[in-house]
Design a protein around this nucleic acid. Structure first.
Lengths: 334, 334
DNA sequence: GTTCCAAACCGAAACGTTTCTGTTTGAGCT
DNA sequence: AGCTCAAACAGAAACGTTTCGGTTTGGAAC
């Protein structure tokens, strides 16, 4: 069907090795070079990366396993990551495991069979057991956003505790004393860290944390709606709420909107991520913004470094968030 | 390094062909079956899909080329698509070409070298020249959302004209006579069709179309902001605006917000896509909603059918949009 | 205990590369 | 013209599968 290197060899009268070295930057006489080029044109030759992958034992492909493609946090990271990987000749196979441990394990096995050169993973299964088999191959793994205890490998994280402290401290400074938090699932490390930041900020200010002000959501939009409704219902004195990821922020705004509660007169809000959405809210939402693009680029850089050299010590990069000021926080005068 | 079928053969005392037929559903005696299973466990064997791909000339991989991963329209389609493809044993390599014709061409060539079994493409280059080489391989191509004149292949489209007519007719019924439209790039078929619907609705109502009410945006958020500002500035009598994709809808809402223009008292708005965002707007935005998930699933079904059988006649599926009513359109009484 | 035949098995060749081990070539010297 | 040596080339083996043709096996029927 498609032309092969053998065809090129036959056509040009050259040997297979010469054709191969032409494609791999070896020494080929100029006149043969043009002969090969002509043959490529005429036969519409294209390198077969599958065969090459079999021979070289490197597919120039990175597997990416994420909980939800359809989440701006993930998709922005991927965009930044892919940019860099592509420019270094690497392809990415993206597997969206729908926040499902089984599918996540399947995805890793699948990528392993496909002989990807490395895996980038925002883990759902916090035991990391889905990664152990792949890790034995010695190929690199880089974790995004969430750390895993057992598995030791490179990771790119965000300073979640600091992020949450910044937000809560702002609310405290503005006089709020009954601050709700829409936290994430208890078993997700980012969620725990953000909640920890919330508690620490309270501790530093000498204000006790009230259990009823804490809601453990599920990081989804619908979960955000429910969380907000619940918090509002059970805390009549709550004057502010801090939402700890984008999807739930969107949900919370929907909830407030549908309950007819005004921001910030009746409730101050600090959200998470998606600057553009924050700008579209009226009044503009104050948010904690994660450097998604930079996370993606950093992940790409780390895995590329690993692929090129065999350093031993694992690196953990922690990036900082930024507060983007809006008008969704009001000042409370006692 | 990793165990191969040859190792399994040695270990079990069976032949290569038997091992192979074990993996491909052939006839293997029960006792040998368990022997093989044990050997797999002990040697941690995993099929090498690269070698298999070379031999079978099928990689069980579909290439997907889209203009922008970081767009909810695209990412929702991909989610729906991947679900179905995965459950049929196909992987997807996603290439985000950043709305760049050169990168799009690169992506297709890249996928071709990787010997993907088919390509799904939301095309940027409307001449389709990036696809002609791949098409010669006889492997299937399915286009999403935008049609291309030269290239004949399956496609899944949306009834854009009807979508726009529905929206504009609603505005006309509510008494609006000076309706702005934030349209898309002139060379994108979806944009032209939506604009056509806008014009047709005016025609049916016997109302002339005014050039100054038409703005050609670029389908980006920032483009939406600019579009809105421009339209508002040059049409003091404009009472409603129809925005023709999600990113520009978000931009338009940002623009209105930052200009302090109230919806719907000062300006009625109909947006496009992203139901959740519409719900988060205050008042809730009326939008035209595309069946993104269904588009993705349909695309997957079509390409799977092509991969399994060699029907000749190409199919074009056209899906309908839905209007989701909010409170962003006011009634005008003359 | 034969006979028979499908079911089960085996080994080699092939897929399209890269790479290893040699061999040839030709430009720059006497 | 002859010599030298690196540069350029050639051929074959190997990567890990599938598949083709041919061989063995085992159980049912006699």
């Amino acid at each position: 069907m498609a032309a092969t290197m053998k065809d090129l060899a036959k056509r040009t009268g050259l040997g297979l090795a010469t054709i191969s070295s032409y494609f791999n930057g070896g020494n080929v006489r100029e006149k043969n070079r043009v002969k090969i080029q002509e043959a490529i044109e005429e036969l519409h030759y294209e390198v077969n990366e599958v065969a090459r992958g079999l021979k070289t034992n490197a597919t120039k492909t990175i597997g990416v396993v994420i909980p939800e493609l359809n989440s701006i946090f993930c998709s922005e990271i991927i965009t930044g990551m892919e940019d860099i990987l592509r420019s270094h000749g690497y392809a990415t196979i993206i597997c969206d495991c729908r926040t499902d441990r089984i599918l996540e394990r399947d995805a890793v096995e699948f990528l392993s069979r496909k002989r990807v050169d490395g895996i980038i993973n925002m883990p759902v299964d916090i035991t990391g057991s889905h990664l152990t088999v792949f890790q034995k191959t010695g190929k690199p793994i880089v974790l995004i956003d969430r750390r895993i205890k057992g598995v030791e490998c490179d990771s790119v994280l965000v300073d979640n505790e600091k992020a949450a402290m910044d937000a809560v401290e702002l609310l405290l400074e503005m006089g709020h004393r009954n601050i709700g938090i829409i936290s994430g699932p208890r078993d997700v490390s980012t969620a725990r860290e953000r909640l920890e930041g919330y508690c620490k900020a309270h501790g530093l200010a000498g204000i006790p944390v009230r259990e009823s002000l804490i809601y453990h959501g599920d990081y989804t939009i619908q979960g955000g709606v429910l969380a907000l409704e619940t918090l509002v219902k059970r805390n009549k004195d709550m004057t502010a709420v801090f939402v700890t990821n984008y999807e739930m922020t969107l949900g919370a705004v929907i909830g407030l909107n549908e309950l007819g509660i005004h921001i910030p007169e009746e409730l101050s809000v600090i959200g998470f991520d998606n600057l553009e959405f924050a700008r579209a809210c009226s009044p503009k939402l104050t948010i904690v913004s994660q450097p998604t693009n930079e996370i993606g680029r950093e992940v790409a850089r780390i895995i590329l470094a690993r692929l090129e050299s065999r350093e031993t010590d694992k690196v953990t990069k922690k990036l900082q968030t930024e507060m983007i000021m809006g008008k969704s926080v009001s000042k409370i005068s006692k």
